[in-house]
Design a protein around this nucleic acid. Sequence first.
DNA 1: AATTTGACGACCG
DNA 2: TCGGTCGCCAAAT
Length: 111
Amino acid sequence: MNEEYVELVLSAVELVPPGRVASYGDIAEFVGRGGARQVGQVMSRHGAAVPWWRVVRSDGQPARGHEQEALARLEAEAAPTRAGRVDMDRGRFDFGETSPRMNFHRGSQGP
DNA sequence: AATTTGACGACCG
DNA sequence: TCGGTCGCCAAAT
């Protein structure tokens, strides 16, 4: 796993606004490389540098081993949580709504 | 080279 | 809703 990939993932995480979340799989799909587990690896080793609590599991549960901390932060920024998990229908951030210019990582020229 | 290990995810009974 | 199971993907044993 190279540095470029790590930066790519961290950059994607930083796009998620306060009060919204993205699943590991969402991030993986957005960056277009690796899978949810690779994103998990990056977050595990380098997540401290970004709003890591906005990356949750596909079912809305916070990162393994960081449930308390993540929930506290998510609730503090008014993310839609219920019974210890994020309501993904309401809280999931759709990367499709990001500015087309954010395609930097895919080397595209945009529409 | 084979197996195990993860801040994971989809399916199924 | 809740476990169990299998698939995934790269890295570490």
